[in-house]
């Protein structure tokens, strides 16, 4: 599998003292969809802009399709990098038709070839025949499709998506992002998706890179990332998580839920990661956990449990489970837990 984009120890700071991007190293295999996930302000968009050539790194190197485009004394301008870019609002040229927008990068091709390519791309994004429309005549979802077609037109080595679905309403967002990823996979396009939405990242990407405060914390496949987060912060960012203190001794640990198994041997004080859906609830009037609230969501329900000392955990269980606030339950675990060494504080 050949590599499309390589970032090696790339750093960028806007103000002295704080690095927006801090020693980031990242590889995108050809044809891969990689999601760069992180809270707003973590440096993920800056990383994207560095790859596109819209920012110049302070240090480190960037290579696209085997060619170094940024490094010491070298900064290839964006127009010579061969990347595609889709912004949050599409950024279509308001004075050009849809055809003119998609064909913008094809100005060196013959008219007929260009027209055929534009028509093919519109067909690809499911908007055949709309060449003569203007951007303001399209809905937000349509504009994003055109923006994608425009980015794909020059057959870039990599397409960079900067929160492309953030401006759309919930229903449309779900539908469009499936379609967009489907198109990118069908065309075998290497894709970097920048997003703050963990569900989006987990459901669309082959690989997810989690970024906090300018640093990459973990790069993993979605399932791996969810099941084995590298640290508690990543764990809580990629999904709902209970973190219970415990004392580890080899393959097992003692905690408020009793004796639990661990995924890897540990020793000493630890924090245990318990996903809400990993807990099974059994009604038991003699158990110490009391149900404090229940939120019914349709496909499942979120149950909040508390101990007399104030410790709370959250469980997610099937909608049919008959549990009422005030009842006492015994939570049990059905799988081994990930443990993190307790930080000295």
């Amino acid at each position: 599998m050949s590599v499309a984009v390589v970032l090696d120890a790339v750093s960028k700071s806007y103000q002295p003292g704080t690095r927006a991007v801090d020693e980031v190293s990242l590889e995108l295999a050809r044809g891969q969809v990689l999601a760069l996930l992180g809270p707003s302000g973590c440096g993920k968009t800056t990383t994207l802009r560095l790859i596109a050539g819209l920012e110049r790194p302070d240090s480190g190197t960037i290579a696209i399709a085997g060619r170094q485009v940024a490094g010491p004394g070298r900064q290839v301008p964006p127009e010579e990098r061969g990347v595609g870019l889709v912004f949050q609002d599409g950024a279509l040229f308001p004075h050009l038709t849809i055809g003119g927008n998609i064909g913008f990068a094809l100005n060196r091709q013959k008219q007929a070839a260009r027209r055929a390519r534009v028509a093919a791309l519109l067909d690809l994004v499911g908007m055949a025949g709309l060449e003569e429309r203007y951007p303001h005549q399209l809905s937000g979802g349509q504009q994003q499709r055109v923006a994608l077609a425009r980015a794909l037109a020059p057959e870039p080595a990599v397409v960079l998506l900067d929160e492309p679905f953030a401006n759309l309403d919930a229903t449309l967002r779900l539908q469009l992002r499936e379609e967009v990823i489907d198109i990118l996979r069908r065309t075998g396009t290497t894709t970097l998706l920048v997003t703050h939405d963990q569900e989006e990242a987990l459901s669309l990407a082959d690989t997810v890179a989690v970024m906090f405060a300018g640093r990459i914390r973990q790069v993993a496949a979605p399932a791996q990332l969810y099941a084995r987060p590298a640290d508690p912060q990543v764990a809580t960012f990629v999904g709902q998580a209970n973190l219970l203190p415990g004392m580890a001794c080899g393959d097992c640990a003692e905690c408020r839920l009793g004796r639990v198994r661990l995924t890897a041997p540990m020793h000493g004080p630890v924090q245990l990661l318990i996903r809400p859906e990993a807990l099974a609830l059994r009604p038991d009037e003699t158990a110490p956990w009391r149900v404090t609230s229940r939120r019914f969501l349709g496909h499942d329900q979120i149950v909040r449990l508390a101990l007399a000392d104030g410790t709370t955990i959250v469980a997610r269980c099937r909608p049919g489970t008959p549990i009422e606030p005030g009842a006492y339950v015994q939570p049990t675990l059905c799988e081994p837990l990930v443990a993190y060494p307790e930080e000295e504080s």
Binding site: G53, L54, E79, L85, F87, F93, A105, A153
Partner: peptide, 20 residues
């Protein structure tokens, strides 16, 4: 973003001035 889109799509500064 408009200007950046044009640059990424291969337009040099002069073309950005004329076309955008």
């Amino acid at each position: 973003q408009l200007v950046e889109s044009a640059r990424v799509l291969g337009a040099r500064p002069l073309r950005v001035l004329c076309r955008i």
